[in-house]
Structure formats: C-alpha cells, structure tokens
Design a protein around this nucleic acid. Structure first.
Lengths: 240, 240
DNA sequence: TCAAAAGTGTTAATGATACACCCATGT
DNA sequence: ACATGGGTGTATCATTAACACTTTTGA
C-alpha cells in the first residue's frame, strides 16, 4: 500500500496504530445515535488527519489483537461515552482500498443507541464528543457520510421490525414519547390513535398504572418494554 | 496472536498466505447457493487444515491488498465456479479471535446466487467443488456452519423483500417454477392462486406470450423479471 | 382416455388508514 | 377559565388466507 508522503509525515492518533508492516488494518466505526425529546443526534469527533482536517468523523478505533468486533465496538463506546451495556448492532463492512489516507484500513460499521436524557451528565464535554442533529449531517471525513447513511437506513428498517427503539427511551415512558421517537427516526408523522392501537395489539408493553409527574398538563400513563412478553410473541408468531 | 505449535507445523494452502507478521488477516467466505429444479445446494470444499481435516468448508480466500471486498468475493466466485456477474450480497463479518486455527483471521461473509441448471456444464468437477443440498448441511469446518445459517436466514429475509430470487432461475421461467423456488428457499408451501395473484399485482413480470416446450403436459406461459418495471415500482411506492 | 401440471374466482378475516372530540391537570 | 397535551372509537379500504375445479397437452 503506497502512502502519500505528505500524509506519512503527519503524526496523529492513527498513524501510531497502523504499522505499515501490516498488509491491512481493521477498524470499527460507530454511528452513535443519541436521542433526547424530539431530537436525534449522532456523536462526531473532530478529525485532524489530512486531507480531512477540520471535518468531523464518526468515532472509531483499530481492532486490537485480543478482541473481536463486538468487543472493540463496546470498548470504543466505553472509552468515548463512559457507557457500558449499550445497544450495538453490526451493520456493514467498508473496504474501498483508498478509503483511508494512511493505508489499507477496512472498517466495520456499527450503530449504537444511547439515551441522552438519562446519561447526559455522564457524557464527556463538547470538545471530546460533538452531538450533531442527524438532520444537519452533511459532509464527514473519509467515507463516513456513506457509513452514516447506511447505518441510519438500517436503524429505520430495524425500528419497524424489532423493538430496538426502547433503547433510546428511559425505562418507563409514555406512549406519546414512544410515538415521537418513531416519528423522529422515520422522519414521518404518525396517527396517534392508530399508533396506540398498533402498539397495544403487539402486547409487548407493560402498563405500570403509574403516571407522569411534573408536567403542567394531564399526566400520561407510564409503560415499559417487557422483554419476556416480546420473546414469547416472537416464539409464537412473528412480530411487527 | 499465539499459534498452537502443532498447527503451525502443518503447511497447507492457507499458511502461505497468512504471514504471521500481520496482526490480522482478512478473508471473504462465500455461501454460494445453487438452485436447480426443486433443490437448493450450497457449494462446499474439502478442508485439509487441522483440526478440521475431512470436514467441509465454505469457499473463501484472503483479501488481496489491491481489492475491496466485493472484488475479492467476485474473484473467489470466478476462480471457483468460472462464473462472472454473479449476484453477491455482503452479509456479516465474523471475528472471534479463535475462529481460525492459524491465527487471527476476520472474515466477511457473502452469499451468492447461481443458476445450476444453466451453468452446470461450466462448473468444475465434483472433487473441486461439492454441491450439498442445504437440507443436509450439518457440521462445517471453522465457524462456517454459523456463517451458513446466518446467510441462509438473510437470503430468506431478502427474498421476501427484494427480487433476488430471479437470479436463481433462467431468464424465462414459469410461475410454477418461481413458486417452487420460493417454497424451497422459505421451506414452506404456498398457495398457488394466492402466489400468482400476488406476483401479478406486483407488476414486475413480463409476459412473453411464449410457452414451455418439451413437457409432457399442458405447457405453461413463460415470464421474465422486468428490471425497469421493478425500479419504477420502487421509485413510486415500496415493494413486496 | 389417462396422467400431469396449468390455470382460474370468491369469500372471510385481518390489518391499515383516515378522522374529531372530550378529559385531566397545572397555572 | 384556559392552555396543554392525554386519551379514546368507528367506518372504509386494502391485503391476506383459505379453498376446488376445469383445461390443455403428450403419451
């Protein structure tokens, strides 16, 4: 793999990890989706690598010899957000030979889902991780815009087929919060009554007979996702 | 990556390609599905690598420095079957650190679809590639059984959402041939009248006003998949 | 004339869509 | 009392599922 000389001279956090003796480096790039009321964000970080200085990139890292891809993705999540037990989903592997200026880096894309409300105080400051509204993502370093688009499409598909959305809400939530989440992810408006009928018919929500507090209007009932009901339903029929 | 000494000593077709200086090798493994009337096969090859001597494995190879993953998959297909322009779909990347006895090999799984009827005479002999009925796949070398299962599930899902099945049939086919294909892939029986109504309503088939020949019963009409109609339909609404 | 697969319609059930008003709470 | 979001039902339409007989051809 030929390296551009001017690129080789630029030392940064990546070059120390890509031994030019390797034929190939493997990395994991995470599209970290963070949700908070009515807004979906993606975690970005500033890129200091030519020719992408000043651009933003997804967060990623080289896969270490001792770890598999899921472990690498979890480590990256932990290092960048401090969070463990985050929902992670492998999406696709990107391998264009010239996709990385430092040499041959094949990257495995993951998306992950984070409740920004709940964990915001735990998350590092703005200069370490930038949370960009997904509606405002235009260009990114490397092929990261393509990776972002593919991961967002995958999320949109999965949210219609599997109960992944609950990873973006607090344990207990109202039906309207859930509907708003679906609307933000899918970028469409949904009918309130049809949405409720649909979700209740799925029979995967647990009613806690508990109400919202601290709202200046009629408080809504709180529900939670019941994994056991879900698995039972999957075993019986299909779902969604 | 520590190598088991007894394994290191066994020279075979892989060890020459996995330089122990690399931290990691990247490979592509293909689940090559071949279809012929009422039967779906997968291409296997005999494995001579301890501890899997005598087992069968999927066909795969190391990704070369000059090629991306799709190119590697196409090359493997070409080398093993002689076929080009084969339908290929990247499925998932497998990365357990101990999945390969010779060291760290991360593999990207693809599935591909081949018309066995049409190309059977072009395919290499039995000792080079073994075509095993997918119903008879039990154990495979490495983690290849898991890869096979994941790829088969993916095919079953995609065939319900996209027009991939047509890659397994000759250009012109009868509606019953198409139905049999779906039944074999999905492992279920379908209702003839409902199947026909459904497919005609999709409006992606072209009627050639042509009949089967050489059959000892009433000949069926021949249809072909019309890509333009399909793309138009995708542009308008959704599909399937 | 027989065997073998081709071809064709209707009904019932289910799921999806469209749509408007009253309710409970805090201020 | 008012502003805010919470909560509910019905009618229509589209899709899916279940089901059996006649037709055409070659042997």
């Amino acid at each position: 793999m030929k390296l551009n000389k001017s690129v080789e001279e630029n030392i940064n956090s990546w070059i120390s990890q890509i031994n030019v003796e390797y034929k190939l480096a493997l990395s994991v790039d995470c599209v970290i989706f963070g949700y908070t009321t009515r807004d979906m964000f993606v975690a970005l970080t500033k890129c200091d690598m030519p020719p992408f200085e000043g651009d933003y990139s997804l967060v990623g890292d080289i896969v270490q010899p001792s770890e598999n891809l899921d472990q690498a993705a979890n480590r990256i999540l932990q290092e960048r957000t401090g969070l463990t037990n985050v929902y992670l989903e492998q999406v696709q592997t990107f391998s264009e030979t010239n996709r990385h200026p430092l040499g041959r880096v094949v990257t495995v894309a993951y998306y992950s889902l984070i409740k920004l409300n709940e964990y915001y105080d735990k998350l590092p400051g703005e200069d370490f991780l930038i949370w960009r509204n997904i509606k405002d993502v235009d260009t990114l370093a490397f092929d990261h815009k393509e990776i972002f688009d593919v991961c967002l499409s995958r999320l949109q598909k999965q949210v219609k087929e599997q109960p992944v959305g609950f990873n973006l809400l607090p344990k207990k939530f109202t039906l309207n919060q859930l509907q708003e989440l679906y609307e933000v992810i899918l970028g469409v408006e949904l009918d309130k009554r049809n949405f409720r009928r649909k979700l209740k018919s799925l029979n995967i929500l647990q009613d806690h007979d508990e109400l919202q507090t601290d709202v200046s209007h009629r408080p809504a009932k709180l529900y939670s996702f019941n994994k056991k009901l879900y698995e039972q339903r999957v075993a019986d029929n299909f779902l969604f």
